[in-house]
Design a protein around this nucleic acid. Structure first.
Lengths: 177, 177
DNA sequence: GTCTGCATGTAAGACGTTACATGATTCT
DNA sequence: AGAATCATGTAACGTCTTACATGCAGAC
């Protein structure tokens, strides 16, 4: 993860869909791809600057209302080429994940540990809430088949996020009914 | 993830099980908990120094063979108290995961994209290999019920890792049979 | 005697989060 | 009028990876 700068490819990919401001990008990270990648605005703005210096994106300044300036970024031909190189390259490594709850569990030796029930109950609540939110999003975004066809990748990854949470809940429930 | 220094708790937890050298810790990270947390030796050694300065661990020097020195670390009473505080505290946030393949998928709009088959095939191979490895480990570590009873947490998280991979493979196969 | 594994450390740089900072616009 | 949201940026700090560096021990 370190050293690969995946963020730049994500920004390029999002700008390849349509021109966007830094703030727009921030929201896409929060809403759409936050399940699989995260970025704060403090990371996005400097990266936009860097990409522009490398001639992979450009911007125009827009005025909203009477004074508010925003910078709308677009991808350049160079940027598209650079993005395509990444998107069609092989992905031969799985980025390892982290899970604090699971690690706490690792240190519990006995099935009879007095803390187990509370720990599992908390996680069930947490993951159920996450699952509910994802199901909500599927309802909002993909209740029409046309939307699935037009944004197939987005649909697939939302399905995957839903699966993942369901699987997590299943495991929690099986291990501690 | 940043700012919480979970690594220190993991080291304390592992030393709480039994005294270990930095190298021992490195191997546990590789073998046992690598599915849910990663740490290189370049992170472990400085952290051991820091924990010792804070009086949460101490070490004795052992000689292996005729010259090879190793430092065997043990947890102190302070260290145990600090560890217990963490292990029994609530875990109210899910650390978001990252997945490069999933993101590449996000940028694919059509079900008919010519790259989809190759992309899915690659991931199926990758995740199948990972699953095989995990099943192997379960066989090695937990084919005896006594082992399950003695290291219940370890058993649970290995089960979870296996579930997760099976679910990932299922999703891959369902989405692209 | 060479190769693999054991063993410990540091340095540089990339990546990521939190906090600091400022101002405009829209909704209630 | 105040709150929430839009909008852009920087600073400080913590975390993590890769690379550099060194030497002993055991197996073949």
């Amino acid at each position: 993860m370190a050293q690969k700068n995946i963020l730049q490819y994500l920004i390029l990919g999002l700008l390849n869909q349509s021109p966007k401001t830094g703030y727009d990008l921030k929201r896409v990270f929060e809403d759409d791809i936050g399940e699989f990648w995260q970025a704060q605005h403090s990371q996005i703005y400097p990266e936009l600057k860097r990409l522009e210096q490398a001639d992979r994106i450009t911007h125009v300044e827009l005025i909203a209302g009477t004074k508010l300036k925003k910078k709308q970024y677009s991808i350049t031909a160079d940027g598209i080429a650079f993005f395509d190189e990444w998107r069609y390259s092989s992905t031969s490594e799985i980025i390892a994940s982290k899970d604090e709850f699971i690690l706490k569990l690792y240190f519990i030796d006995s099935k009879k540990d007095a803390h187990l029930d509370a720990m599992f109950t908390e996680q069930k609540t947490l993951h159920q809430a996450k699952l509910d939110h994802l199901l909500d999003r599927r309802q909002t975004l993909f209740s029409q088949q046309a939307a699935v066809d037009a944004h197939y990748g987005h649909y697939l990854i939302l399905e995957h996020a839903i699966n993942r949470e369901q699987d997590y809940l299943n495991w929690l429930t099986t291990a501690r009914p």
